[in-house]
Simulated scan of single mutants.
Amino acid sequence: MILCFDIGGTAIKSAEAFCADDIRPGARVPTPGGDFARFAAVLRRAVSDASTAPERVAISIAGVIDPDTGRATVANIPCLTGRRLVADLTAELGLPVDLANDADCFALAEAGIGAGRGHDVVFGLILGTGVGGGLVVRGELINSAGGFAGEWGHGPVAQRIIGDQVLPAFACGCGQTGCLDAICSARGMERLHLHLTGEALDSQAIVAGWEAGAPAPSHTIGLWLELLAGPLAMVQNMLGAGIMAAGGGLSNSRPLIAALDRALRARILRRLERPLIVPAECAIEPGLVGAALLGLSRRGRALA
């Protein structure tokens, strides 16, 4: 059995994975973000409370592991930042530890049991609090040792001029200006709408207004689609993904995902008559499923 954790700034969720078709979600407990000893104690308690002794631990986490140093950067769990997290948790738990970030685990889940089944190259497309993604090739993460692969939302590439509309280069949390994350995430869409109209609406209201045909939200969403579709076409031309599975809060609008799919397919080299961007299908928590699939694959290698 693989003991799986999906760890965010608010909560630690767990599951027991016996195989890809038998993943059993378990407890949810608050994340002790400021104290590593307490954080490790929560995981040790889950190990001791497991229904059967786990063979290894697999973790999805909202952070990044530097592939050269093994050190973690986890903005919303300060006690983990700067640690060689895999090594530290292996020592604390006395078990092999597999770890990937949440976007990568989302992509693994969709490739394994979701919308990406049957495709060699699957891009997990995150459109929510952030713009990001993860890449799975033939069932394996492209960045198995950690790193920043799939983070297409960062870099100063957002268009400033679309038709007669001039847009500002919004500052991004990564320290740059002009990132897609800063203008096309849920908060970015709100920032864009406020700039265009002077009206403060949340992203759900903007999307709902667009779906209803309201002029101001329709203008905002039209520009949002233009901002995303070009850079995403470059990503697709480079990756050759068979499917892009969309997750995150904005993906809850199927008309919005369908509109982005049409805009993307009009801009890529390969002409596709079928959808390329589709809503994610993983019914269970994708972080837990992705962690489970990661741990199960590593267990298979260890037994080989």
Rank of each mutant, 00 (worst) to 15 (best):
L95G: 02
P67M: 07
I142T: 14
V121Y: 08
I162D: 03
L80M: 05
G132N: 07
L89W: 04
F106H: 13
I61E: 00
L141M: 04
I142K: 14
G146T: 03
L99I: 02
G134R: 05
R160A: 13
H119M: 13
L85S: 01
A107F: 05
T52I: 14
G163F: 08
A87E: 15
E55F: 12
T81P: 00
L85A: 04
V136R: 01
P156S: 14
C79T: 08
A115P: 00
D120V: 14
G128S: 01
R83D: 06
R56Y: 06
T52Q: 15
L141H: 01
T90W: 07
I65V: 15
N143T: 12
I59V: 12
D102A: 00
A109W: 06
A145H: 09
A87S: 13
G112M: 10
A58L: 00
T129Q: 08
V131G: 06
G147P: 10
D88M: 07
G114T: 03
S48R: 15
V74M: 04
I77E: 00
E140A: 14
S51Y: 03
A158C: 10
A158V: 10
W152E: 11
G133Q: 01
R138M: 09
P78W: 10
R160H: 12
P96Y: 05
S48F: 13
A111S: 07
L108A: 01
V166T: 15
A75Q: 13
R45K: 15
R84I: 15
V97H: 00
V137Y: 07
R83G: 07
G70T: 08
A158T: 06
I61C: 06
A100D: 03
D88A: 14
A145V: 03
L127G: 02
G153M: 06
G63W: 06
A75V: 14
V157N: 13
V166Y: 11
G133K: 04
V166P: 03
D66F: 09
V97A: 01
V97K: 05
F123M: 10
R56D: 10
G146F: 04
V137H: 11
W152I: 11
L85E: 00
G124Q: 08
A111V: 09
E110S: 01
L95R: 02
G82C: 04
V136Q: 02
C105E: 00
A58D: 00
I126V: 13
V74E: 05
G70P: 09
R117F: 11
V47I: 13
V122Y: 07
G112D: 08
A87I: 11
C79Q: 04
A75S: 14
P156T: 07
G82K: 04
T129L: 11
P96M: 02
I161C: 11
W152P: 11
R45L: 12
G146K: 00
A158H: 10
G82M: 01
L108H: 04
C79E: 09
T129M: 11
A53F: 09
A62N: 09
E55A: 15
R138C: 11
T90C: 09
T52P: 03
V86G: 04
S144I: 10
A145P: 03
I142E: 07
W152T: 03
G155D: 05
A115K: 05
P96W: 06
G153H: 05
H119S: 09
L93V: 03
